[in-house]
């Protein structure tokens, strides 16, 4: 009975799900990252749990070349000062000289250097991330989620080591790995 119900619910959902016709190859144009995007990060801690947060202030662009992801460009920057974790003392610590040092380094930037398409809706983005004045190569994985009128949505994930940026405070209690999980809405210009 439960299984039947579940199956029927799934069937009813089908018509609202977009047909997976959208492919990266069909995209073109210059998009600005919309403020409705969501930039979440998490750092695991020993014994389970960890720190989860978002960066509400950011900006960015995607420059997509039709049929050729390799020529496309992505830039992104965020204001670490805007970090929100739900715990003011943690936020104060993250903004301080112990971590982001937002007074000396108000922005964290990313600039792609190579984009490789993998499959119809997936791309691997390599680039240079600069935080606390230190530039380092990083890789993110982007999946095209939705394309609707003038907006496209990418789900972008990436694991970064924080130690190269002089942000290793708290290791090994808190993992060296920062996991980024972002929903980027691009608005066509």
């Amino acid at each position: 009975m439960r299984v039947m119900f579940f199956a029927i619910s799934l069937l009813m959902l089908l018509p609202v799900m977009p047909a997976r016709a959208d492919t990266l190859s069909a995209l073109r144009g210059r998009y600005v990252v919309d403020p409705s995007s969501h930039i979440a990060f998490s750092v695991a801690q020993i014994g389970g749990g960890g720190i989860q947060g978002v960066f509400p202030r950011f900006s960015g662009t995607f420059d997509l070349q039709p049929g050729d992801m390799a020529k496309s460009r992505v830039t992104f920057s965020l204001q670490p000062e805007s970090v929100a974790t739900g715990e003011p003392r943690v936020e104060k610590f993250l903004r301080s000289s112990a971590v982001f040092d937002v007074e000396a380094y108000p922005t964290i930037t990313f600039r792609s250097t190579a984009i490789r398409q993998e499959g119809s809706d997936h791309a691997v983005i390599q680039g240079v991330l600069t935080a606390r004045g230190i530039a380092h190569r990083e890789t993110f994985e982007a999946t095209l989620v939705k394309r609707q009128g003038q907006t496209i949505t990418f789900h972008v994930v990436g694991d970064l080591m924080r130690s190269p940026y002089g942000m290793d405070v708290g290791t090994p209690i808190y993992s060296n790995v920062v996991r980024f999980d972002m929903m980027l809405n691009g608005r066509r210009r």
Binding site: Q45, I46, G47, G49, E87, R89, V90, P172, I173
Partner: peptide
Amino acid sequence: SPLMIPSFVFDLVVVP
């Protein structure tokens, strides 16, 4: 503490 910072004694054992 709401900060829930684990006590990882001498980076060897977690004291709950």
